[in-house]
Design a protein around this nucleic acid. Sequence first.
DNA 1: TACGATGTTCGACGAACGACGAAATTGCCG
DNA 2: CGGCAATTTCGTCGTTCGTCGAACATCGTA
Lengths: 119, 119
Amino acid sequence: MPRSTRRRPALSHPAAEEIDLYDVLHALSDPTRMTIVRVLRAEPERACGTFPVDVAPSTLSHHFKVLRESGVISQREEANRRFSALRTVDLERRFPGLLDTVLAALARNETGAEATWHG
Amino acid sequence: MPRSTRRRPALSHPAAEEIDLYDVLHALSDPTRMTIVRVLRAEPERACGTFPVDVAPSTLSHHFKVLRESGVISQREEANRRFSALRTVDLERRFPGLLDTVLAALARNETGAEATWHG
DNA sequence: TACGATGTTCGACGAACGACGAAATTGCCG
DNA sequence: CGGCAATTTCGTCGTTCGTCGAACATCGTA
């Protein structure tokens, strides 16, 4: 039998008012993490292993931690799966328009001139 | 006599269409560089040494280079001074609303809860 | 109970980052 | 000409970053 209902430490999320802009910008300045955010905007919730990113599981786990501790996403445990979701409401309250603007910029970025020779 | 009218290599600026979002977000994820951007939004142009940041001149020069090569600012030489300006038009064309939204978020960030104990 | 699936933690590694001081460049001015 | 002021370049130091593999934990299920 499990020795306790909750053996793993609770997932740490910053409160909405404590989300730091520099942490958010740093979290969004990585292509792998940005891909996670982009996918997560289309779907309300998604399990960690189902993202179209090409990195090792441990690396992916690291990126989720960065996103979570910066306040960009929240994570919820269910069985041995971990579901992630964008903290759209908290983010909008703290930094109005930021997430939408950055995601719109991301769409522009992919049609930019450097996609031909830079990537 | 000077051996040439232009001895120093020309300052490299990315074209407006080549500005990369990840470079911009990374450039803005540092407090010193963000201070430069904030000051530069209030004034159209300013010499490098006149910014209210507390780092060594060589460090400051490094930050200006990061900002310039990411496309956030432009730099112009005049005598032995170098003037910096925000590339507001190019930025607005490439990523509409991004700069304004981030700077509005910065104002929010400074009145946040973490300013009491985190700074 | 044992296995497989899911995901994390723990080092390790090379690359990049932010910071500095020293030296060099450039141009103005006494 | 000879400083002085502004700024960059170079080398260095310590830290952080992104990545990986190996090991561990948890849960459902055969």
